[in-house]
Write a protein that binds this DNA or RNA. Structure first.
Lengths: 242, 242
DNA sequence: ACCACTAAATGAATGACGTTCATTTAGTAG
DNA sequence: CTACTAAATGAACGTCATTCATTTAGTGGT
């Protein structure tokens, strides 16, 4: 982020250019600049990405609109389109940034199985707070997301070093990723998602299984399921190594 | 403003009271009925669900709007809201119907591992054509989707009969489902999703792994990854049985 | 048989939201 | 100095989901 970002304090002349162009409803907040190219660029992709992330953290993906994003940047919505061609591109920028937060360091320091475990939990935790991005990532060409590509490289290298047959590496990573994405949704599910309510009588086996899980449930159900599946995948894939 | 706003059709004069109320652009197609409750109900939830499914098949989820849905039913968009409270409810109806297409019959006829295999492939295949529903399903209380609940019952029963410890059944199913949902996205990914383009030099291990997979690739990559992961899960979970 | 109530349709309006475009201003290359 | 281009503003636009007033028809109660 090499954003020069003036502090908005450059009020040039007399204060009395007067009476901000700001009326809208209640608050002050935006005496924006006048039309025309500003002396120093206000926006760039990094700044937009940061602002998007802040906005998403604060207001969620529902509150994440181009208008709201523009507002936090003190800019007209249309200004964004000088730097990104669509909202989808902003989402890709956010996605790529988030991927850089996924911890792949264990592939340098730990044995393969532990490295996969650490990476997978980290990956799931990052995206469980950003499930609306999953449909975007899942079909995103890696070319469009350099940091995501870097993660794949780190993981591939780990698999390679662990003695994985080359032609299985991608398939194994894809399978793990699929499980991780699906599990990320699971984290966000409501606690009573499996409460069968009035229909409980017609589903005795399911209802009983749900009850039995709940009895022993100090751990979060999503974590139990994730651990169970992840360990099975690690064990199964571990057997493929030469 | 509760402006009574004349109906624009009040042209007092003469000509034919006739001449369908249909002008819109090109085609005939909709000489709809006049205002007011029709003698026989035109809409119900089943009809809406069917029409939604047809529309989605024909136009995809992009073309699936409440207006388009209303058009195929020869009804005003607002009429839909007498039967469903939101578009989301329509999606839930569609989801529930699709789940009834998932084949659980193997749990009655095959050994546990083969039953899981058949069910999982069927489940993935159904929803790989409906990935926009996945965010809906993943957090949908089972109470709201009776056919989905029925599927869970069938699967739970299969696990129970196979000697699974009760308190692990739900976790195992959730893990499988997570993998299935993630894999459904994978099916829709573009073929060149892993083409690292100009960045190939900086990602040698990843690029090599991608190439090696492509060499041996008569099977669809998504199917290879799904099979690999599914077999690992089945093997791992199979060991939990008593 | 009448009457109140409710159900189910129309059609007009509303308010977001993503996006485009004409316009303005300012830096930059020849 | 002069084009050209980059980066803002602000006013549209088109699309959607959704709401509301209105109209008509079936229904249950007396």
């Amino acid at each position: 982020m090499e954003t020069p970002l003036h502090t908005a304090a450059e009020r040039p002349g007399m204060p009395a250019a007067t009476s901000a162009p700001t009326d809208p409803h209640r608050p002050d907040a935006k005496p924006r600049r006048r039309a025309g190219r500003p002396p120093a660029a206000v926006l760039d992709q990094d700044g937009i990405t940061e602002a998007a992330l802040r906005l998403i953290r604060k207001s969620g993906y529902d509150g994440f609109t181009m208008a709201a994003l523009a507002r936090t940047l003190n800019v007209a919505p249309s200004a964004l389109y000088n730097h990104v061609s669509s909202k989808r591109v902003v989402l890709v920028l956010v996605e790529d940034h988030l991927t850089s937060l996924v911890d792949v360091s264990a592939f340098e320091a730990e044995p393969w199985d532990q490295a996969v475990r650490d990476w997978a939990w980290s990956y799931r935790d990052v995206f469980s707070k950003h499930t609306p991005l999953i449909p975007v990532i899942a079909v995103l060409p890696v070319t469009d997301a350099p940091k995501t590509l870097a993660m794949y490289e780190a993981v591939s290298t780990g698999f390679s070093r662990a003695g994985f047959p080359q032609e299985r590496i991608i398939s194994a990573i894809v399978a793990l990723e699929s499980f991780i994405f699906g599990s990320a949704y699971d984290v966000t599910a409501p606690a009573d998602i499996f409460d069968s309510g009035t229909m409980a009588e017609s589903t005795p086996n399911f209802t009983s299984a749900v009850d039995r899980l709940a009895e022993k449930g100090y751990e979060k159900p999503a974590d139990v399921a994730f651990s169970l599946g992840l360990e099975a995948l690690i064990a199964g894939f571990g057997a493929l190594r030469k």
